[in-house]
Design a protein around this nucleic acid. Structure first.
Lengths: 318, 318
DNA sequence: CCAGTTTCATAACATCACGTTATGTAGACC
DNA sequence: GGTCTACATAACGTGATGTTATGAAACTGG
C-alpha cells in the first residue's frame, strides 16, 4: 500500500480544520479538488475515512489515524520550507571562510563571534591558508570566502578581490616594553631585542624581512617561530621580544592592554587586506551575508583606527 | 516557499542510499525521473542540494538538512501504509459491539479478552441493548456487530442474523444451594425461594415469566431486580435466591464453581442466540475478524457444552 | 414540517508534472 | 589515457491535479 504524502496532508488539513471548505482554504486549493482527492484515497484504501452521510464531515477512526500521519508530513514540510527560507535569507547555512592565520585569529574570530550572535543558525567552518591556497580553494569550490592581504595589481583568475583595509604592519611588543616609552624609536634600538618570526612561508615573514631591511637592520636574532597568534601573544607579553604584526590585529587587542605598537615607520607593504571570493559560483546567501557583515565591520574598523591614530598623534604632539 | 513532500522523500532516499541510481531502485522509479525532479527542486529553491561536479553525488549542507525532513515524511508515510495494511487485515481498527447485558458480561467479555490478546491494536467499544435497539443501531451504522437472542422466524429489515447457539435458559443458584443436591427438582420446590429478576424490559425477564408459567408457578417473590450480571452473581452466591440465566453464562462460570444449574426442565425459548450484522454496509475488516472469532468461539463452546452435558448425564445415570 | 442555508459531490476540461526509454557526457579509477 | 560507472538530457505519453459551474443532501431555524 503506497500512499501519496500530499493526500495525507490534505486529509490532515480537512480533519483539523473541520471540513472540506475550511481545509481547502487552509491549503489554498479549491474545495472540489480536496473532495475528489479524498474520495480517490478512500477508494484506493477501500475503507471510509469519513462517516458517510454526515454533513459536518466527521472522520472515522482510520481517518483520524491517517490524519495524524498527515500532520507529521505537514510539520516536516513546514520545517523544510522554513529551512529554505532561512537559507535564502542567509540566516542559515554553512560558510567556509579561510584566511591568513594571524588575521583570522586576531581579527576575524571576533567578527565571527559577533556575526553568530545575530545568526545562530549559520555554521562557520574556518580554515587557514595563504593567498595562493585560498585562491585555489575558492576556484575549486571548497571555500566561500577568503580574507587575506593581496597586491593591488595582482588579479588572480576566477576570483574577485575587494580591498577593505590598507596593509599596515607595525612592530609589536608587550605593553610595558622598554621601547614603548620612547616617543621615537630608531632602528638601532631594535637590535638588542629578540624577535618572534612568523612561519617562513607566510607573507608576514616577508614583511618582517622587508621592514627590517628598509630600516637597515639585517641581522636580528629570532628567538621563536612557528606559533599561532595565541602563543605569539603569550611570548610577547612574557618577554621583551618584538615581532611584526598587522596593525589591525594589535588594534583589536587594545582592550586587553597587553600589546603595543612601537612608534616606528617600517614601510607599508604593497598589499591591501581584502575579501576574496570566487567569481564563477554565486555565493550562498549565508556566505554573502557574512561577507557583507565582515566588509561593514572592517569599514567601521578603518574609521575607528583612523580616529585612534588621530588621537594618539594629538596626544603625542602635545 | 511551498515544497512538494514527495520531492523531499526523493531527496531523502537519494541522500540515504548514496546516489541517484540506488535511490531510484529504493523508490521503485527510474533514475532520470529522480534526476529531473531534484534538478527542478534545486532550481526552485535556487540553491544546490548536491555539490556540483562530484560523481558519487554528495549532498550539500542544505541538501542534508532537507533530506532530514524528507526522512520524516518517509517514516510518516510508511507508518500510514502500515496503518492501512493492518486495518485491511483486521489487525487494527474499531469494533463497536453491542448485546444483551447478561450475555455481554457473562460470555462475550471473556471472548473479547481472548481476541484482544491476539489483536492488541483493535479497539472494542462495547454497549448494551436489546434486539430492537441493536437492530436500529446496526442499520443506523453506529454499531458493527450485535450479539443477542432472536426468534428464528423474525427477519428484521436490513440486518442479517446468524444463529450460533440454541437458546437455553436454566434456573441458576449458588453452588451449595439446598436444591442442588436433588437429582430432580419439582416446580413446587421453587416456590419457597426468593427470585432475582432481570430488568422487566429484557427478553430474559419474559423467559423467566414464561418458564415459571410453564412450570405452573405463577406466584414467585422477587427479592432483587435491575442489577448487572456481576451483582446478580454476588447476590446468588450470598443467598439462596434463584434466577433464570442462559445456560451458556452459567457454563462459562463453571470454573469459578460458584454457580450451578438446577436439574429442571423449564422449556426452551423459541429463540437462538446469534450474531446480528447490518446487511447494507460491508463490515470493517476488524469487525469481520471479530465476528468470525466470536462465531468460532461459540462453535467450540457448543461442542464443549454438549460434551459437558453428556458427561453430566452419564454421571447422573450411574 | 418546510424553507433556507450550508456543505459536500459531480461534471467537464485544461494543464502540467511525472514516469518512461533512449542516449549523451563527464567524473572516477586503474 | 582508456574504460566504466553514474548522472544529465531529450522526447513523448499519460494521468493526476487544478479550475469553474452546478447539483444534491443534510443541518438549521421557525
Amino acid at each position: 500500500m503506497k500512499l501519496d504524502p500530499r493526500h495525507l496532508e490534505i486529509l490532515a488539513a480537512v480533519v483539523d480544520e473541520g471540513g472540506l471548505t475550511e481545509g481547502a482554504r487552509a491549503l489554498g486549493k479549491s474545495q472540489p479538488s480536496l473532495s475528489r482527492t479524498l474520495s480517490q484515497l478512500e477508494h484506493r484504501i477501500g475503507a471510509p475515512l469519513f462517516e458517510p452521510g454526515r454533513r459536518p464531515l466527521r472522520p472515522t477512526e482510520l481517518g483520524r489515524a491517517l490524519a495524524e500521519r498527515g500532520r507529521q508530513v505537514l510539520t516536516a514540510n513546514a520545517a523544510a520550507s522554513s529551512i529554505v527560507t532561512k537559507y535564502r535569507g542567509g540566516k542559515s547555512g554553512l560558510v567556509r571562510v579561510g584566511g591568513t592565520p594571524v588575521f583570522m585569529d586576531g581579527v576575524i574570530a571576533g567578527m565571527i563571534a559577533d556575526f553568530q550572535q545575530q545568526n545562530p543558525d549559520v555554521r562557520i567552518d574556518q580554515s587557514y591558508g595563504y593567498a595562493e591556497d585560498l585562491t585555489a580553494a575558492l576556484t575549486a569550490g571548497t571555500l566561500d570566502l577568503a580574507i587575506c592581504p593581496m597586491r593591488r595589481d595582482a588579479r588572480a583568475e576566477g576570483v574577485e578581490f575587494q580591498p577593505i583595509l590598507p596593509g599596515l604592519n607595525v612592530v609589536a611588543c608587550r605593553a610595558g616594553h622598554p621601547l614603548m616609552r620612547r616617543t621615537l624609536v630608531t632602528p638601532a634600538d631594535l637590535a638588542e631585542f629578540p624577535w618572534i618570526a612568523p612561519p617562513v612561508d607566510s607573507p608576514l615573514y616577508k614583511d618582517l624581512r622587508r621592514a627590517l631591511a628598509n630600516i637597515g637592520t639585517e641581522a636580528f636574532k629570532i628567538s621563536f617561530t612557528g606559533g599561532t597568534l595565541a602563543s605569539v601573544i603569550s611570548i610577547l607579553t612574557g618577554s621583551d621580544a618584538l615581532t611584526v604584526l598587522p596593525y589591525s590585529v594589535v588594534f583589536m587587542l587594545r582592550r586587553q592592554n597587553t600589546l603595543g605598537a612601537l612608534s616606528l615607520q617600517i614601510g607599508h607593504p604593497d598589499r591591501d587586506l581584502g575579501l576574496l571570493t570566487a567569481r564563477a559560483a554565486p555565493a550562498s546567501p549565508a556566505a554573502a551575508r557574512f561577507k557583507a557583515f565582515v566588509a561593514k565591520q572592517f569599514g567601521g574598523l578603518a574609521v575607528t583606527i583612523q580616529q585612534h591614530q588621530q588621537d594618539m598623534l594629538w596626544r603625542g604632539a602635545r
